[in-house]
Each structure stands twice: as structure tokens, then as C-alpha cells.
Simulated assay, not measured.
Amino acid sequence: MKRIFKFIEKYFFIIILLAVAVSLVYPNSFQWVLGEYNGINMLNLLLSIVLFTMGTTLKANDFANVFKNPKEIGVGISAQYVIMPLIAFALARVFSLNDALTVGLVLVGTVPGGTASDVITFLSKGDVALSVSLTAVSTVISPVLTPIITLILIGNQIHFSPVDMFISILEIVIIPIVLGLILNYKFPDFCEKLKDYLPAISSIVVCLIVAGVIGANKQAILTSSAIIILVIILQYFIAMILGFGVGYLAGMGKKQIITVAIELAFQNSGLSTGLAKTHFPSLSQATVPGALYSVWQNFAGSLLAYVFRKYV
């Protein structure tokens, strides 16, 4: 059984591509992902599962690292919530994206870092402890910063409630993480055993989310795929390049520079998809950038990890 889970974790980027292919051929197969069951929003539930698994891997020491490495943490978090949102907003303007795609792209930029960054950092021989700390801290402060930055960037052209978004992030992100932390604190040995299975479980959940969103927006993706895919690829690589630049200018070591670059480029795209669906229901295409970004960041990240490990 453990081998199966390790296989899923190792070849996640292939599995997510297969999920995308299935969702395009049989778009109704994953329709339930965007629906409700007994009044429960299935997309938000799936996101909560991913964040709960993240919580079970965290300990108080991960947050204590903020005080041990204040410069690296400060630089990484500042880049996360300044550079990434500006990249998204600038690309939306340069390519004249419609309101829905602009919302989706900006949300990809304003959400916290994704948990996949920790795995890619490990594979790239970066600073895993720093990556975990950056992911944890950016996630914990996201209920405040994500709504505020989103409001600043698009609030004058697209109406939404930042307070409602704050509450959503608390429900989807903070509560599951806290529950995971409590479980890890009370039953550390049990959570240690779970570590062999949780990455694969999170990977499967992310695949379901991506497949559900892409299946529901099949026609929109096929008609506007060239531009939005180009924008997603640019967003990823610009973030990666600027991450290297920021780390270098801050005087970090090679491992820390790699880590900051990966952390900046890897986003919690599933969360951006959930927020788009919840807070911009009239803009169905707003969920598309998050889904596409999830596919691309995991595919490109796996390839870049090989390059970093071998040549950097």
C-alpha cells in the first residue's frame, strides 16, 4: 500500500495531466467537485482536506523559525505578497484579459504559497525548513492579506466583499490547519506515520479539484486557451526569476535563494480556485487560471527540480 502512495507522490505531475485529459474528454465526470452535498460545498471541503493534511505535518518549531531566520522569512513573505500579486495584475493588463480571467489570475497571485513548494524544495536540494516556515507563515496571515491585496488591485472594477473572503479563508484554511496542528500535538507518533501517505492524498485531492474546474470550463478553456496558458507560464517563470533576484540581492546563500524562488512561484492555486467560485459566482471563468496554474506549476516544478539538483 505504501508503495502505491509513494508512486502517486512521485509521479503527481503525470497523474494531474491524466486527470486533465479525462476531464476534457468526459467533462461531466468531475461535475460533483463544484457542486454541493447536503449543503456542503464540495470544493471547499476538498481544499480543507489539503490544508488539514498540511496542519498535521506542522509543529511549533516551524513558526519558531520566523525568529531564528527573520531576514529570510521577511524577504520571502514580502516577495510573496508584493511581487506575485503585481506580476498577476500586470500580466492581466498587458494581455487585456476579461474580468473573469483577471480575477482568477489576481487571486493566484494573492493567495499564500502552496504546500507543493516544500516537496519541490526538497527535490531541488534547497532549504526545506525555510520553505516549510514560509508556507506556514504565508498561509496563517493569508486571511488578512489576500482580501486586502485583492481589494486594492481589482476592487475598483469588480465588486466583492473582502470581509466575506476573510471569513472564507478562516473556514477553508485556518480551522483545518489548527485542527491538524492539534492532532499532531496530541498524537505525534500517529501523524509521523501518516507522513508516508498524506502527500499522495493531497495530490489526489488537487487532481480532483483541477479536473472538476477544467471539466466545467472546457469550452471556455478551449476557446481562450492559447492566451491564458501563455499568461500562466509567464506568471510562473517571471516569479521564479524575480525570486532568484530577490534572494541574491538580499545576500542569501544558494539553498535559500532556490527556496525563495520556488516559494514565490508555487501558489495555493486550489485556494484561489475556491475563492473565485465562492466570491465571484457570476464570473465562471475566474476559476480557470487557478486550475491551469496548478497543472503548470507541478509539471514545470518537477522538471526544474531536476535541473536545480543537477546543475545549480
Rank of each mutant, 00 (worst) to 15 (best):
T115P: 01
T102H: 08
R3N: 15
S117Q: 14
G55M: 05
G126S: 05
K255E: 14
S203A: 14
Q31P: 00
A216T: 06
L179M: 11
V213F: 10
G301D: 01
A79L: 01
V173F: 04
G290I: 15
I14S: 01
S138V: 08
G290S: 14
M54P: 02
L58S: 04
A261F: 09
N28K: 15
N98M: 11
A200Y: 06
F95D: 01
F160S: 12
V246A: 00
G251W: 14
V231P: 01
P112F: 12
L179W: 08
F5I: 02
Y197W: 14
L101T: 07
A265H: 05
N65T: 08
F190V: 11
G290P: 12
D99F: 12
T115Q: 09
V108D: 06
P85T: 03
D196I: 13
N69Y: 15
M84T: 14
Y197A: 10
Y236A: 04
Q256S: 09
L34E: 08
S133N: 07
K2F: 10
Q256P: 02
C191E: 13
F244I: 15
I169Y: 11
T146S: 13
L198G: 07
T121W: 04
I158V: 10
L151E: 14
S29D: 09
S202N: 11
L222W: 11
L170K: 11
T259A: 05
A100S: 15
T121G: 03
S284T: 06
P162A: 12
G301M: 01
I149T: 00
F13Q: 08
A136P: 00
V206P: 03
I177R: 10
G155C: 01
P162D: 10
F89Q: 02
V213M: 09
K6Y: 09
